[in-house]
C-alpha cells in the first residue's frame, strides 16, 4: 500500500532519513531540497503537514518552506499520479518530433498536459530541455530517461509500467 501523509510522518525511517540529510551538509538548510524530494518521491506531492514537519526539522518556518515548494517545478502541492510522464517540448526536441509524441500520449491517456488520469495512475506534463537533446524526443518516466521516443516506443514503455 502506498504511503499517506500521516503514515509517512509516523514512519521512523523517514524521520531518520530527514535527520541524516540535515546532518549531511555544512548547514541544515542546504538539506531542504533533498528533504522535499524524499517527500515528493514517497507521496507524489508535498502536503502542508509534511512541509511543516520538514520546516521544524531544519529550523525554518512553514511559510518559507511553502515558498520553496511552489518555486520549484519538481514539487507539487497536489497529488500527482503514480507514474509521472514528462515530455520535453523545448526546441531541439521539437525539431525531433516531440509534438507528435505529446499528441500521441494525450490521445492514449485522454489527458491534457498537467492533468492526471482518474485512476491516479498517470500524470502527463511537458518539461523544458532535459539535457539530452541528441536523443530527442526525450521522455522521462519517473526517474528513467528515454531517448528517441516514437509513439510506438512510448506504448511499449507504458505497457511495462505496473
Amino acid at each position: 500500500m502506498s504511503a499517506t501523509p500521516a503514515s509517512l510522518l509516523a514512519n521512523e525511517e523517514f524521520a531518520r532519513k530527514v535527520e541524516a540529510l540535515a546532518a549531511k551538509y555544512p548547514e541544515p538548510r542546504t538539506a531542504l531540497l533533498a528533504c522535499l524530494h524524499l517527500c515528493q518521491d514517497e507521496l507524489h506531492h508535498v502536503p502542508p503537514e509534511c512541509q511543516a514537519y520538514i520546516a521544524g526539522k531544519l529550523g525554518m518556518t512553514p511559510a518559507h518552506v511553502r515558498g520553496v515548494v511552489t518555486f520549484y517545478e519538481m514539487y507539487s502541492e497536489k497529488p500527482l499520479g503514480k507514474h509521472l510522464l514528462q515530455v520535453c517540448k523545448t526546441l531541439p526536441c521539437m525539431l525531433a518530433g516531440s509534438e507528435l509524441l505529446l499528441e500521441h500520449l494525450e490521445r492514449k491517456l485522454g489527458l491534457k498536459p498537467g492533468s492526471t488520469t482518474k485512476d491516479g495512475r498517470f500524470t502527463l506534463v511537458t518539461v523544458e530541455c532535459l539535457a539530452c537533446c541528441d536523443g530527442g524526443p526525450s521522455l522521462m518516466v519517473n526517474d528513467a530517461l528515454y531517448k528517441n521516443v516514437s509513439p510506438e516506443k512510448a506504448d511499449e514503455i507504458i505497457k511495462e509500467l505496473e
Binding site: K24, Y25, P26, T30, L33, A34, L36, H37, F71, Y72, E73, M74, Y75, V127, E128
Partner: peptide, 9 residues
C-alpha cells in the same frame, strides 16, 4: 557535498 536541484533553469 552533492546537492540536487528541483527543476528551475
Amino acid at each position: 557535498w552533492v546537492c540536487r536541484g528541483a527543476g528551475a533553469y
